[in-house]
Design a protein around this nucleic acid. Sequence first.
DNA 1: TTTGATT
Length: 488
Amino acid sequence: MATLTNGQVDGTVHGVGVVSASTNGLVNGLSHSHSPAGCPATIPMKDHDAIKLFIGQIPRNLDEKDLRPLFEEFGKIYELTVLKDRFTGMHKGCAFLTYCARESALKAQNALHEQKTLPGMNRPIQVKPADSESRGEDRKLFVGMLNKQQSEDDVRRLFESFGCIEECTILRGPDGNSKGCAFVKYSSHAEAQAAISALHGSQTMPGASSSLVVKFADTDKERTIRRMQQMAGQMGIFNPMALQFGAYGAYAQVQQQAALMASVGQGGYLSPMAAFAAAQMQHMATINGLPGAPLTPTSGGSTPPGISAPTVTSIPSPISVNGFTGMPPPQANGQPPAEAVFTNGIHHYPAQSPTAADPLQQAYTGVQQYAAAYPAAYGQISQAFPHPPPIIPQQQREGPEGCNLFIYHLPQEFGDGELMQMFLPFGNVISSKVFVDRATNQSKCFGFVSFDNPGSAQAAIQSMNGFQIGMKRLKVQLKRPKDANRPY
DNA sequence: TTTGATT
């Protein structure tokens, strides 16, 4: 019965391999009747996941009608085309073959590929998925910035007017919650392209942070590249210096920042690093609880062995860094509050000649103050040192509950790196993320920092919440737990 | 200016 139906709609069926072919035909016929509007009524139907095969090493005297019988024993053929030279029409010795059923293609490949040699050929026949198949996700779209409440059906409705949707999947987490993105597979590249043109950036879903993203899904290669980049990012978070030297390394990092700050500070442009160094200086004052009080420019400047740093001097004038207000007016006297605070045996060296007040020295001094003001913080880092440092915390972006901070009112210039470094003194930062507007690549001035323990997170809140940078004050709070703020 | 998604 099914065979008859197929025979009627498909004049090319030859009645070979009828049993399995008709089964597939029936299934497809049924699904076809339910297919969304806009799907062309292609006959005969093939499986959505049908595989287009490349057939090689075909004698040039065989054309489609000669080849059919050979392949039909594995299932109903949807399409078989001998490749011909575009200009001369000459048989190129190969063909494309698509079965209605994916299964048939697999069977044919297993049975034939390199298994026999056709008459007149000196190499065995090739039966394998066409290149276009392995490459071929060019009709599959990645859709981002969906509302997390939207279902497959909602997404289908949004995309159905551009073509025949073969597949629509919302990406979900382990708990079944939508991740706000989806895959939509059309039956052709052109349909997918049409959907991109019409929908990408066209609207912003309620609750989404930016406009709808509609683009071709990654190919395998792109996916691999992305993975590598992610790995690199993971490694990058954990600065080798910090890992190797614990607090010592962190301190060296700060020195590097200071140097960088100085180098750009003179040009009038305030880099993220400079902003950070400046922030640290100010923060240091805050922590001391001595805003405007004598903060010591230090005689305690240390140059840890092996780390090159400029000669340290005291600062004769108040620190002022472009664009930053509220800096404490340090005075050139007194002692740093925490001389020799490093608990891992690193000591400050005596200061050298007190001279000039160039930006570098200012910055450097400020950073020293910062370091000096953080005995506890640096102590934490150094405590972690004797244990094997957690290098890559299993891909995780988030720490345990209570370890993740949400920070906003960040300076526009801050990126992930600056954010991390700002919080490094409070513990092991397992991730830091500044939100970036996908359209403009600009920071949205808020982000996340995750520690590996709640104590560090609390310490960071204590110290950094309300911390003034420029005209803004940081807000540092625990990240809302995932299940909070659910409408239902 | 207010909560990390991504094949």
